[in-house]
Design a protein around this nucleic acid. Sequence first.
DNA 1: CGATTGCTTGACCCCCATCAATCCTCGTGG
DNA 2: CCACGAGGATTGATGGGGGTCAAGCAATCG
Lengths: 228, 228
Amino acid sequence: MSKCEQCIVKQFNSLKHLSREELKRVSACKTSKIIKKGKPLFEEGDRINGVFCIKDGVCKVSKMSENGRNQIISLIKKGDIIGERSLISDEPANLTAIALDDMEVCFIPKEEIIKDLEKNPGFTMSVLKDMANTLKKADNVIVDMAQKTVKQRLAETLIRLKDKFDVTDDGIINLQLSREDFANIVGTATESAIRLLSDFKKRGLVEFKGKEFKILDTKSLEKIAQGF
Amino acid sequence: MSKCEQCIVKQFNSLKHLSREELKRVSACKTSKIIKKGKPLFEEGDRINGVFCIKDGVCKVSKMSENGRNQIISLIKKGDIIGERSLISDEPANLTAIALDDMEVCFIPKEEIIKDLEKNPGFTMSVLKDMANTLKKADNVIVDMAQKTVKQRLAETLIRLKDKFDVTDDGIINLQLSREDFANIVGTATESAIRLLSDFKKRGLVEFKGKEFKILDTKSLEKIAQGF
DNA sequence: CGATTGCTTGACCCCCATCAATCCTCGTGG
DNA sequence: CCACGAGGATTGATGGGGGTCAAGCAATCG
Protein backbone atom coordinates (compact mmCIF):
# COMPACT_ATOMS: atom_id res chain seq x y z
CA MET A 1 0.00 0.00 0.00
CA SER A 2 1.22 3.51 -0.79
CA LYS A 3 2.50 5.70 2.00
CA CYS A 4 1.07 9.04 3.10
CA GLU A 5 4.58 10.50 3.52
CA GLN A 6 5.12 10.10 -0.19
CA CYS A 7 1.63 10.90 -1.39
CA ILE A 8 1.49 14.00 -3.59
CA VAL A 9 -2.17 14.54 -2.87
CA LYS A 10 -1.56 15.59 0.73
CA GLN A 11 0.09 18.79 -0.53
CA PHE A 12 -3.34 20.13 -1.41
CA ASN A 13 -4.96 19.82 1.99
CA SER A 14 -4.43 20.25 5.71
CA LEU A 15 -2.49 17.01 6.00
CA LYS A 16 0.58 18.84 4.71
CA HIS A 17 0.91 20.37 8.17
CA LEU A 18 1.56 16.99 9.76
CA SER A 19 5.13 16.04 10.57
CA ARG A 20 6.83 13.06 8.95
CA GLU A 21 6.27 11.09 12.15
CA GLU A 22 2.59 11.90 12.27
CA LEU A 23 2.16 11.01 8.63
CA LYS A 24 3.74 7.63 9.24
CA ARG A 25 1.27 6.90 12.00
CA VAL A 26 -1.59 8.01 9.80
CA SER A 27 -0.30 5.90 6.99
CA ALA A 28 -0.12 2.86 9.23
CA CYS A 29 -3.77 2.93 10.12
CA LYS A 30 -5.35 4.22 6.95
CA THR A 31 -7.20 2.07 4.44
CA SER A 32 -7.49 2.58 0.68
CA LYS A 33 -10.70 2.07 -1.24
CA ILE A 34 -11.94 2.13 -4.79
CA ILE A 35 -15.41 3.60 -5.16
CA LYS A 36 -17.15 2.78 -8.42
CA LYS A 37 -18.96 5.47 -10.40
CA GLY A 38 -22.42 6.02 -8.99
CA LYS A 39 -21.64 4.36 -5.66
CA PRO A 40 -21.82 6.27 -2.38
CA LEU A 41 -18.76 7.21 -0.38
CA PHE A 42 -21.15 7.69 2.52
CA GLU A 43 -24.78 8.55 2.97
CA GLU A 44 -26.92 10.80 5.13
CA GLY A 45 -27.17 9.24 8.55
CA ASP A 46 -24.02 7.11 8.29
CA ARG A 47 -21.59 7.17 11.18
CA ILE A 48 -18.44 7.59 9.20
CA ASN A 49 -15.92 7.62 12.06
CA GLY A 50 -13.10 9.12 10.11
CA VAL A 51 -12.17 11.29 7.17
CA PHE A 52 -11.67 10.55 3.51
CA CYS A 53 -8.76 11.91 1.53
CA ILE A 54 -9.54 11.89 -2.19
CA LYS A 55 -6.68 10.47 -4.20
CA ASP A 56 -8.48 10.53 -7.50
CA GLY A 57 -11.92 11.11 -8.98
CA VAL A 58 -14.81 13.44 -8.27
CA CYS A 59 -17.91 13.10 -6.11
CA LYS A 60 -21.06 15.10 -5.61
CA VAL A 61 -22.08 16.00 -2.07
CA SER A 62 -25.81 16.38 -1.69
CA LYS A 63 -28.68 16.54 0.74
CA MET A 64 -32.29 15.46 0.45
CA SER A 65 -34.85 18.17 1.05
CA GLU A 66 -38.08 17.47 2.90
CA ASN A 67 -40.04 17.46 -0.33
CA GLY A 68 -37.91 14.61 -1.64
CA ARG A 69 -35.73 16.59 -4.02
CA ASN A 70 -32.00 16.45 -4.01
CA GLN A 71 -29.70 19.43 -3.60
CA ILE A 72 -26.04 19.20 -4.54
CA ILE A 73 -24.08 21.27 -2.04
CA SER A 74 -20.62 20.86 -3.48
CA LEU A 75 -18.31 18.85 -5.70
CA ILE A 76 -15.23 17.28 -4.20
CA LYS A 77 -12.13 16.37 -6.18
CA LYS A 78 -8.59 15.04 -5.96
CA GLY A 79 -6.74 16.44 -2.98
CA ASP A 80 -9.83 17.37 -1.01
CA ILE A 81 -10.67 15.99 2.39
CA ILE A 82 -14.20 15.17 3.37
CA GLY A 83 -15.84 13.99 6.54
CA GLU A 84 -14.08 16.30 9.01
CA ARG A 85 -17.31 17.91 10.06
CA SER A 86 -19.18 14.86 11.29
CA LEU A 87 -15.96 13.85 12.98
CA ILE A 88 -15.57 17.16 14.76
CA SER A 89 -19.17 17.51 15.82
CA ASP A 90 -19.36 13.79 16.55
CA GLU A 91 -22.63 13.31 14.70
CA PRO A 92 -23.82 11.12 11.84
CA ALA A 93 -23.23 12.54 8.37
CA ASN A 94 -25.94 14.92 7.27
CA LEU A 95 -24.84 14.81 3.66
CA THR A 96 -24.50 12.11 1.02
CA ALA A 97 -21.41 11.76 -1.18
CA ILE A 98 -21.72 9.87 -4.46
CA ALA A 99 -18.91 9.17 -6.94
CA LEU A 100 -19.26 10.80 -10.36
CA ASP A 101 -16.50 8.61 -11.76
CA ASP A 102 -14.39 5.78 -10.39
CA MET A 103 -12.65 7.09 -7.31
CA GLU A 104 -9.62 6.24 -5.28
CA VAL A 105 -9.84 7.35 -1.67
CA CYS A 106 -8.00 6.82 1.60
CA PHE A 107 -9.88 6.49 4.83
CA ILE A 108 -8.25 7.71 8.05
CA PRO A 109 -9.98 6.59 11.24
CA LYS A 110 -11.29 9.13 13.69
CA GLU A 111 -8.98 8.44 16.64
CA GLU A 112 -5.90 9.12 14.59
CA ILE A 113 -7.15 12.49 13.34
CA ILE A 114 -8.37 13.52 16.77
CA LYS A 115 -4.94 12.73 18.16
CA ASP A 116 -3.35 14.98 15.56
CA LEU A 117 -5.85 17.76 16.19
CA GLU A 118 -4.99 17.73 19.87
CA LYS A 119 -1.24 17.60 19.42
CA ASN A 120 -0.55 19.69 16.33
CA PRO A 121 -1.84 23.29 16.45
CA GLY A 122 -0.64 24.00 12.93
CA PHE A 123 -2.78 21.20 11.62
CA THR A 124 -5.76 22.34 13.65
CA MET A 125 -5.40 25.91 12.45
CA SER A 126 -5.29 24.68 8.89
CA VAL A 127 -8.50 22.72 9.35
CA LEU A 128 -10.02 25.78 10.98
CA LYS A 129 -9.01 27.94 8.03
CA ASP A 130 -10.47 25.46 5.59
CA MET A 131 -13.71 25.46 7.46
CA ALA A 132 -13.85 29.26 7.66
CA ASN A 133 -13.35 29.35 3.92
CA THR A 134 -16.05 26.78 3.27
CA LEU A 135 -18.39 28.78 5.46
CA LYS A 136 -17.70 31.94 3.52
CA LYS A 137 -18.50 30.16 0.28
CA ALA A 138 -21.66 28.72 1.80
CA ASP A 139 -22.80 32.24 2.70
CA ASN A 140 -22.26 33.34 -0.87
CA VAL A 141 -24.28 30.40 -2.13
CA ILE A 142 -27.11 31.30 0.23
CA VAL A 143 -27.19 34.83 -1.13
CA ASP A 144 -27.15 33.57 -4.70
CA MET A 145 -29.89 31.04 -4.09
CA ALA A 146 -32.05 33.63 -2.42
CA GLN A 147 -31.54 36.50 -4.81
CA LYS A 148 -30.57 35.30 -8.25
CA THR A 149 -32.64 33.74 -11.00
CA VAL A 150 -32.09 30.17 -12.15
CA LYS A 151 -30.48 31.47 -15.32
CA GLN A 152 -27.99 33.56 -13.36
CA ARG A 153 -27.13 30.67 -11.08
CA LEU A 154 -26.63 28.29 -13.97
CA ALA A 155 -24.30 30.68 -15.76
CA GLU A 156 -22.34 31.15 -12.55
CA THR A 157 -22.17 27.40 -11.99
CA LEU A 158 -20.66 26.84 -15.42
CA ILE A 159 -17.96 29.42 -14.76
CA ARG A 160 -17.17 27.96 -11.35
CA LEU A 161 -16.88 24.47 -12.81
CA LYS A 162 -14.42 25.71 -15.38
CA ASP A 163 -12.29 27.35 -12.71
CA LYS A 164 -12.37 24.42 -10.31
CA PHE A 165 -11.91 21.42 -12.58
CA ASP A 166 -9.32 20.29 -15.07
CA VAL A 167 -9.72 21.60 -18.58
CA THR A 168 -8.10 19.77 -21.52
CA ASP A 169 -6.00 21.62 -24.07
CA ASP A 170 -9.05 22.08 -26.27
CA GLY A 171 -11.02 23.51 -23.35
CA ILE A 172 -13.16 20.47 -22.64
CA ILE A 173 -14.35 19.83 -19.09
CA ASN A 174 -15.04 16.18 -18.45
CA LEU A 175 -17.23 15.98 -15.38
CA GLN A 176 -19.75 13.19 -15.51
CA LEU A 177 -22.64 15.47 -14.60
CA SER A 178 -26.12 14.55 -15.83
CA ARG A 179 -28.71 17.21 -16.66
CA GLU A 180 -30.40 16.29 -13.44
CA ASP A 181 -27.13 16.97 -11.59
CA PHE A 182 -26.95 20.42 -13.14
CA ALA A 183 -30.52 21.04 -12.03
CA ASN A 184 -29.70 19.84 -8.52
CA ILE A 185 -26.71 22.14 -8.23
CA VAL A 186 -28.71 25.16 -9.32
CA GLY A 187 -31.81 24.12 -7.40
CA THR A 188 -34.36 23.83 -10.16
CA ALA A 189 -36.33 21.27 -12.15
CA THR A 190 -34.41 19.14 -14.64
CA GLU A 191 -36.46 20.47 -17.54
CA SER A 192 -35.68 24.06 -16.62
CA ALA A 193 -31.96 23.34 -16.52
CA ILE A 194 -32.16 21.60 -19.89
CA ARG A 195 -34.00 24.50 -21.46
CA LEU A 196 -31.51 27.05 -20.21
CA LEU A 197 -28.51 24.96 -21.20
CA SER A 198 -29.83 24.49 -24.72
CA ASP A 199 -30.46 28.23 -24.85
CA PHE A 200 -26.83 28.89 -23.86
CA LYS A 201 -25.80 26.42 -26.54
CA LYS A 202 -27.87 28.15 -29.23
CA ARG A 203 -26.27 31.44 -28.32
CA GLY A 204 -22.81 29.91 -28.69
CA LEU A 205 -21.81 30.20 -25.05
CA VAL A 206 -21.26 26.51 -24.38
CA GLU A 207 -20.94 23.27 -26.29
CA PHE A 208 -22.01 19.78 -25.27
CA LYS A 209 -20.95 16.32 -26.41
CA GLY A 210 -22.77 13.94 -24.13
CA LYS A 211 -21.61 14.78 -20.63
CA GLU A 212 -18.47 16.56 -21.73
CA PHE A 213 -18.80 20.27 -22.16
CA LYS A 214 -16.78 23.26 -23.18
CA ILE A 215 -17.18 26.92 -22.35
CA LEU A 216 -16.92 29.11 -25.42
CA ASP A 217 -17.77 32.57 -24.12
CA THR A 218 -16.92 33.20 -20.48
CA LYS A 219 -17.47 36.95 -20.72
CA SER A 220 -21.08 36.56 -21.84
CA LEU A 221 -21.75 33.99 -19.14
CA GLU A 222 -20.40 36.41 -16.56
CA LYS A 223 -22.75 39.08 -17.86
CA ILE A 224 -25.66 36.67 -17.54
CA ALA A 225 -24.59 35.70 -14.02
CA GLN A 226 -24.71 39.37 -13.08
CA GLY A 227 -28.21 39.73 -14.47
CA PHE A 228 -28.16 40.68 -18.14
CA MET B 1 -15.09 47.73 33.58
CA SER B 2 -16.57 44.29 34.16
CA LYS B 3 -14.33 41.24 34.14
CA CYS B 4 -14.51 38.30 31.76
CA GLU B 5 -13.86 35.84 34.61
CA GLN B 6 -17.12 36.89 36.20
CA CYS B 7 -19.15 37.40 33.05
CA ILE B 8 -22.12 35.04 32.80
CA VAL B 9 -22.31 35.44 29.05
CA LYS B 10 -19.10 33.49 28.43
CA GLN B 11 -20.86 30.31 29.59
CA PHE B 12 -22.75 30.24 26.31
CA ASN B 13 -19.77 30.24 23.98
CA SER B 14 -16.30 28.85 23.40
CA LEU B 15 -14.73 31.25 25.88
CA LYS B 16 -15.87 28.95 28.68
CA HIS B 17 -12.99 26.65 27.74
CA LEU B 18 -10.42 29.27 28.70
CA SER B 19 -8.69 28.97 32.06
CA ARG B 20 -9.04 31.60 34.74
CA GLU B 21 -5.59 32.88 33.83
CA GLU B 22 -6.40 33.16 30.17
CA LEU B 23 -9.66 34.93 30.92
CA LYS B 24 -7.83 37.49 32.99
CA ARG B 25 -5.50 38.25 30.13
CA VAL B 26 -8.43 38.51 27.75
CA SER B 27 -10.22 40.76 30.18
CA ALA B 28 -7.23 43.03 30.46
CA CYS B 29 -7.09 43.83 26.78
CA LYS B 30 -10.76 43.78 25.82
CA THR B 31 -12.85 46.88 25.25
CA SER B 32 -16.59 47.32 25.83
CA LYS B 33 -18.87 49.14 23.45
CA ILE B 34 -22.45 50.24 23.22
CA ILE B 35 -23.89 49.96 19.73
CA LYS B 36 -27.06 51.94 19.14
CA LYS B 37 -30.03 50.40 17.36
CA GLY B 38 -29.53 50.56 13.62
CA LYS B 39 -25.78 51.14 13.85
CA PRO B 40 -23.27 48.67 12.38
CA LEU B 41 -21.08 46.47 14.51
CA PHE B 42 -18.95 46.06 11.40
CA GLU B 43 -19.47 46.21 7.68
CA GLU B 44 -18.50 44.25 4.61
CA GLY B 45 -14.87 45.00 3.82
CA ASP B 46 -13.91 46.13 7.33
CA ARG B 47 -10.74 44.74 8.83
CA ILE B 48 -12.12 43.87 12.20
CA ASN B 49 -8.95 42.48 13.81
CA GLY B 50 -10.66 40.72 16.64
CA VAL B 51 -13.86 39.10 17.78
CA PHE B 52 -17.00 40.45 19.36
CA CYS B 53 -18.69 38.80 22.32
CA ILE B 54 -22.32 39.86 22.57
CA LYS B 55 -23.25 40.81 26.11
CA ASP B 56 -26.72 42.01 25.25
CA GLY B 57 -28.94 42.79 22.29
CA VAL B 58 -29.49 41.29 18.87
CA CYS B 59 -27.97 42.02 15.49
CA LYS B 60 -28.68 40.96 11.95
CA VAL B 61 -25.81 39.62 9.85
CA SER B 62 -26.29 40.26 6.17
CA LYS B 63 -24.61 40.40 2.81
CA MET B 64 -25.25 42.52 -0.25
CA SER B 65 -25.96 40.57 -3.43
CA GLU B 66 -24.65 41.76 -6.78
CA ASN B 67 -28.06 43.07 -7.79
CA GLY B 68 -28.06 45.38 -4.76
CA ARG B 69 -30.45 43.46 -2.56
CA ASN B 70 -29.68 42.50 0.97
CA GLN B 71 -29.70 38.97 2.33
CA ILE B 72 -29.81 38.34 6.07
CA ILE B 73 -27.67 35.29 6.77
CA SER B 74 -28.23 34.99 10.49
CA LEU B 75 -29.30 36.70 13.69
CA ILE B 76 -26.84 36.93 16.55
CA LYS B 77 -27.83 37.32 20.17
CA LYS B 78 -26.57 37.51 23.73
CA GLY B 79 -23.81 34.99 24.37
CA ASP B 80 -22.83 34.58 20.74
CA ILE B 81 -19.40 35.34 19.37
CA ILE B 82 -18.94 36.91 15.99
CA GLY B 83 -15.94 37.77 13.89
CA GLU B 84 -13.94 34.54 14.38
CA ARG B 85 -14.03 33.75 10.72
CA SER B 86 -12.37 36.85 9.32
CA LEU B 87 -9.88 36.49 12.13
CA ILE B 88 -9.05 32.89 11.29
CA SER B 89 -8.87 33.37 7.55
CA ASP B 90 -7.16 36.72 8.02
CA GLU B 91 -9.39 38.52 5.55
CA PRO B 92 -11.68 41.55 5.68
CA ALA B 93 -15.24 40.83 6.82
CA ASN B 94 -17.48 39.66 4.02
CA LEU B 95 -20.62 40.25 6.04
CA THR B 96 -22.27 43.25 7.65
CA ALA B 97 -23.64 43.18 11.21
CA ILE B 98 -26.25 45.76 12.21
CA ALA B 99 -27.82 46.15 15.65
CA LEU B 100 -31.57 45.49 15.85
CA ASP B 101 -31.72 47.07 19.30
CA ASP B 102 -29.23 48.80 21.55
CA MET B 103 -26.37 46.38 22.07
CA GLU B 104 -23.63 45.86 24.59
CA VAL B 105 -20.61 44.07 23.19
CA CYS B 106 -17.04 43.31 24.16
CA PHE B 107 -14.25 43.43 21.63
CA ILE B 108 -11.28 41.11 22.03
CA PRO B 109 -8.30 41.93 19.82
CA LYS B 110 -6.95 39.39 17.38
CA GLU B 111 -3.55 38.71 18.93
CA GLU B 112 -5.08 37.66 22.21
CA ILE B 113 -7.45 35.16 20.60
CA ILE B 114 -4.76 33.77 18.32
CA LYS B 115 -2.57 33.21 21.34
CA ASP B 116 -5.33 31.24 23.04
CA LEU B 117 -6.04 29.24 19.89
CA GLU B 118 -2.40 28.20 19.73
CA LYS B 119 -2.06 27.34 23.39
CA ASN B 120 -5.41 25.89 24.39
CA PRO B 121 -6.56 22.88 22.35
CA GLY B 122 -9.86 22.66 24.24
CA PHE B 123 -10.69 26.19 23.19
CA THR B 124 -9.70 25.52 19.60
CA MET B 125 -11.77 22.35 19.46
CA SER B 126 -14.74 24.25 20.79
CA VAL B 127 -14.37 26.91 18.08
CA LEU B 128 -14.00 24.12 15.55
CA LYS B 129 -17.20 22.48 16.77
CA ASP B 130 -19.05 25.77 16.62
CA MET B 131 -17.93 26.27 13.08
CA ALA B 132 -18.86 22.72 12.04
CA ASN B 133 -22.29 23.33 13.46
CA THR B 134 -22.70 26.66 11.69
CA LEU B 135 -21.67 24.97 8.47
CA LYS B 136 -24.27 22.27 8.91
CA LYS B 137 -26.94 24.89 9.42
CA ALA B 138 -25.72 26.78 6.38
CA ASP B 139 -26.10 23.64 4.28
CA ASN B 140 -29.66 23.26 5.47
CA VAL B 141 -30.39 26.85 4.57
CA ILE B 142 -28.97 26.30 1.09
CA VAL B 143 -31.29 23.35 0.58
CA ASP B 144 -34.27 25.32 1.83
CA MET B 145 -33.48 28.34 -0.32
CA ALA B 146 -33.06 26.18 -3.38
CA GLN B 147 -36.03 23.90 -2.94
CA LYS B 148 -38.73 25.51 -0.86
CA THR B 149 -41.28 28.17 -1.75
CA VAL B 150 -41.26 31.58 -0.11
CA LYS B 151 -44.28 30.61 1.95
CA GLN B 152 -42.55 27.50 3.27
CA ARG B 153 -39.42 29.44 4.15
CA LEU B 154 -41.36 32.15 5.92
CA ALA B 155 -43.25 29.63 8.03
CA GLU B 156 -39.99 27.93 8.91
CA THR B 157 -38.38 31.24 9.78
CA LEU B 158 -41.14 32.09 12.22
CA ILE B 159 -40.73 28.75 13.97
CA ARG B 160 -36.96 29.13 14.17
CA LEU B 161 -37.27 32.61 15.62
CA LYS B 162 -39.57 31.30 18.30
CA ASP B 163 -37.11 28.59 19.22
CA LYS B 164 -34.05 30.80 19.19
CA PHE B 165 -35.24 33.96 20.91
CA ASP B 166 -36.75 34.80 24.24
CA VAL B 167 -40.49 34.49 24.51
CA THR B 168 -42.40 36.36 27.22
CA ASP B 169 -44.93 34.59 29.44
CA ASP B 170 -47.71 35.55 27.06
CA GLY B 171 -45.76 34.15 24.11
CA ILE B 172 -44.65 37.44 22.62
CA ILE B 173 -41.37 37.59 20.72
CA ASN B 174 -39.88 41.05 20.73
CA LEU B 175 -37.37 41.20 17.93
CA GLN B 176 -37.20 44.57 16.25
CA LEU B 177 -37.55 43.09 12.76
CA SER B 178 -39.11 45.21 10.04
CA ARG B 179 -41.15 43.66 7.24
CA GLU B 180 -38.20 44.30 5.02
CA ASP B 181 -36.02 42.32 7.43
CA PHE B 182 -38.39 39.38 7.22
CA ALA B 183 -38.24 39.61 3.44
CA ASN B 184 -34.45 39.71 3.55
CA ILE B 185 -34.25 36.63 5.75
CA VAL B 186 -36.51 34.65 3.47
CA GLY B 187 -35.02 36.10 0.30
CA THR B 188 -38.04 37.71 -1.29
CA ALA B 189 -39.58 41.11 -2.00
CA THR B 190 -40.93 43.07 0.96
CA GLU B 191 -44.44 43.08 -0.50
CA SER B 192 -44.43 39.31 -0.84
CA ALA B 193 -43.39 38.87 2.76
CA ILE B 194 -46.10 41.29 3.88
CA ARG B 195 -48.76 39.48 1.91
CA LEU B 196 -47.82 36.11 3.31
CA LEU B 197 -47.57 37.39 6.86
CA SER B 198 -50.99 38.98 6.68
CA ASP B 199 -52.31 35.72 5.25
CA PHE B 200 -50.85 33.83 8.22
CA LYS B 201 -52.46 36.41 10.47
CA LYS B 202 -55.89 36.01 8.85
CA ARG B 203 -55.66 32.28 9.34
CA GLY B 204 -54.89 32.78 13.03
CA LEU B 205 -51.36 31.41 12.93
CA VAL B 206 -49.57 34.55 14.12
CA GLU B 207 -50.40 37.90 15.67
CA PHE B 208 -48.65 41.22 15.20
CA LYS B 209 -48.53 44.39 17.28
CA GLY B 210 -46.07 46.64 15.54
CA LYS B 211 -42.80 44.75 15.48
CA GLU B 212 -43.73 42.42 18.29
CA PHE B 213 -45.26 39.16 17.26
CA LYS B 214 -46.64 35.99 18.73
CA ILE B 215 -46.99 32.53 17.30
CA LEU B 216 -50.43 31.09 17.86
CA ASP B 217 -50.35 27.83 15.92
CA THR B 218 -46.95 26.20 15.60
CA LYS B 219 -48.35 22.92 14.29
CA SER B 220 -49.99 24.56 11.29
CA LEU B 221 -46.87 26.57 10.55
CA GLU B 222 -44.87 23.36 10.56
CA LYS B 223 -47.31 21.84 8.10
CA ILE B 224 -46.89 24.85 5.84
CA ALA B 225 -43.10 24.67 6.14
CA GLN B 226 -43.30 21.09 4.93
CA GLY B 227 -45.37 22.09 1.96
CA PHE B 228 -49.08 22.01 2.74
C1' DC C 1 -32.95 -6.20 -29.47
C1' DG C 2 -36.41 -4.89 -26.22
C1' DA C 3 -36.38 -2.07 -22.18
C1' DT C 4 -35.08 1.04 -19.00
C1' DT C 5 -33.10 5.40 -18.23
C1' DG C 6 -31.89 9.92 -19.58
C1' DC C 7 -32.71 13.91 -22.77
C1' DT C 8 -35.64 17.26 -25.17
C1' DT C 9 -39.54 20.03 -26.29
C1' DG C 10 -44.41 21.70 -25.81
C1' DA C 11 -48.29 23.44 -23.13
C1' DC C 12 -50.21 25.24 -19.05
C1' DC C 13 -50.60 27.72 -14.91
C1' DC C 14 -49.20 29.44 -10.47
C1' DC C 15 -45.98 31.90 -7.67
C1' DC C 16 -43.77 35.86 -6.99
C1' DA C 17 -41.20 40.30 -8.60
C1' DT C 18 -42.37 44.72 -9.81
C1' DC C 19 -44.77 49.08 -10.19
C1' DA C 20 -48.11 52.08 -8.21
C1' DA C 21 -51.23 54.12 -5.01
C1' DT C 22 -52.86 54.64 -0.38
C1' DC C 23 -52.67 54.37 4.47
C1' DC C 24 -50.40 54.38 8.87
C1' DT C 25 -47.04 55.84 12.33
C1' DC C 26 -43.91 58.34 14.46
C1' DG C 27 -40.50 61.96 15.17
C1' DT C 28 -39.63 66.89 14.46
C1' DG C 29 -40.25 71.56 14.53
C1' DG C 30 -43.31 75.41 14.51
C1' DC D 1 -50.26 70.59 20.88
C1' DC D 2 -50.79 70.11 16.21
C1' DA D 3 -49.15 70.04 11.43
C1' DC D 4 -46.37 67.94 8.44
C1' DG D 5 -43.14 65.11 6.24
C1' DA D 6 -40.74 60.79 5.71
C1' DG D 7 -40.37 56.17 5.96
C1' DG D 8 -42.73 51.90 6.77
C1' DA D 9 -46.90 48.98 5.99
C1' DT D 10 -50.57 47.49 3.04
C1' DT D 11 -53.27 46.32 -0.98
C1' DG D 12 -54.15 46.02 -6.03
C1' DA D 13 -52.89 45.02 -10.79
C1' DT D 14 -49.89 42.90 -14.04
C1' DG D 15 -46.46 40.10 -16.37
C1' DG D 16 -42.82 36.76 -16.54
C1' DG D 17 -40.11 33.05 -14.61
C1' DG D 18 -40.11 28.60 -13.67
C1' DG D 19 -42.57 24.23 -11.79
C1' DT D 20 -45.23 20.45 -13.47
C1' DC D 21 -47.39 17.15 -16.53
C1' DA D 22 -47.07 14.83 -20.81
C1' DA D 23 -45.30 12.93 -24.90
C1' DG D 24 -41.73 11.86 -28.13
C1' DC D 25 -36.83 10.84 -28.86
C1' DA D 26 -32.00 9.24 -28.04
C1' DA D 27 -28.86 6.31 -25.68
C1' DT D 28 -27.26 2.86 -22.83
C1' DC D 29 -27.38 -1.85 -21.03
C1' DG D 30 -28.40 -6.49 -20.01
